[in-house]
């Protein structure tokens, strides 16, 4: 039964309307995917255009207007639409600027982790034997260490800064990619097309670059997108614990941490950056989910 269904399915794919055009059509059909894309685009634009969008310098304190509520509450003004924090800094401007570091850290850490994980995953999966043993046992030991504790120690030693934060986040989460890429590589390695590459006398490097890598990359992209979300949250947690982003830099996580003491009296200081994190993470997850749906069937092809 499957053969018939598959042939009719794959023959449909044969009727091709440019790869990207059809990708775009599929995106429009998936509502969540579309919403995800809009959110991610909006956040990216916000981060890039922050100096033009924000009304205030995010670090500028103003004791006179401490803890002003959002505009719709009594005492709030349109000058600070989302209110101000305990030092009188404009919450909206800080959220806009905060997106820069949150996204920068989230995306860079994922790229770093992805490259490391991809490299070791490919080596472990393709060459196997001793390489596999060494790499996978290293991965296991990384997984055995409590993540946050490990990061906190390193940050405490090296001192918190944006580059160290990226290094630490990337340096601990590569194991996820290594495991995934390794298992995908193991299955791709057994396909006949890889065997056919060996049969024509292709060298290992060529096989990895032209046969294995392109066929594991779709699942990799999907996992990576989803991980952007969890990295943003991790960065927030570290900043919340005081070892992430330091003032005068601003990130959403740091804002959460700052607002914690005022939750009872001035809820808006912590709530709005919290919402920003939630919305962004949701957007990224939607996008990742949709990517999985779109890219995965292509692997079968």
């Amino acid at each position: 039964m499957t053969t018939t269904l598959e042939t009719s399915q794959s023959s449909l794919n044969r009727k091709k309307k440019g790869r990207f055009k059809s990708l775009f059509f599929r995106l429009l059909k998936s509502k969540t995917g579309f919403v995800g894309l809009i959110i991610v685009l909006a956040m990216t634009i916000m981060a890039i255009l922050a100096p033009y969008l924000a009304m205030y310098d995010p670090a500028k304190t103003n004791i006179m207007s401490r803890l002003l509520p959002p505009f719709w509450l009594e005492g709030g003004t349109m000058e600070h639409p989302l209110g101000t924090d305990n030092l009188g800094r404009d919450v909206l401007s800080r959220i806009i600027y905060g997106s820069r570091i949150s996204l920068l850290v989230g995306i860079s850490a994922v790229i770093l982790a992805g490259i490391i994980g991809m490299f070791f995953g490919l080596i472990a999966g393709y060459y196997g034997k001793l390489w596999d043993f060494i790499i996978m046992r290293t991965v296991d030991s990384f997984l055995a260490i409590p993540n946050i504790l490990f990061m906190l120690i390193i940050l405490a030693v090296l001192g918190p800064s944006v580059p160290t934060l990226i290094l630490v986040l990337g340096g601990t989460s590569w194991v996820v990619y290594a495991r995934m890429v390794r298992s995908e590589t193991l299955s791709v390695k057994e396909r006949d097309y890889v065997r056919s590459a060996r049969a024509i006398g292709a060298k290992n490097f060529r096989i990895i670059a032209k046969y294995v890598l392109p066929n594991v990359i779709s699942s990799f992209i999907v996992i990576a997108t989803l991980n952007v979300a969890s990295t943003i949250i991790l960065e927030a947690s570290l900043s919340f614990l005081g070892l992430g982003i330091q003032s005068p830099d601003v990130s959403w996580g740091l804002m959460l941490s700052d607002g914690r003491e005022y939750l009872a009296t001035s809820w808006w200081v912590a709530t709005f950056p919290g919402i920003a994190i939630t919305v962004t993470v949701l957007g990224v997850i939607f996008l990742g989910d949709w990517l999985r749906d779109v890219l995965d069937p292509k692997i079968k092809d």
């Binding site: 039964m1 053969t3 018939t4 269904l5 042939t7």
Partner: peptide, 17 residues
């Protein structure tokens, strides 16, 4: 393959995808 023979049998069983 593609002749519709299996789909016919699935239809009779009432277990089309």
């Amino acid at each position: 393959s593609g002749s519709g023979k299996s789909v016919t049998s699935l239809a009779v069983m009432g277990i089309l995808p």
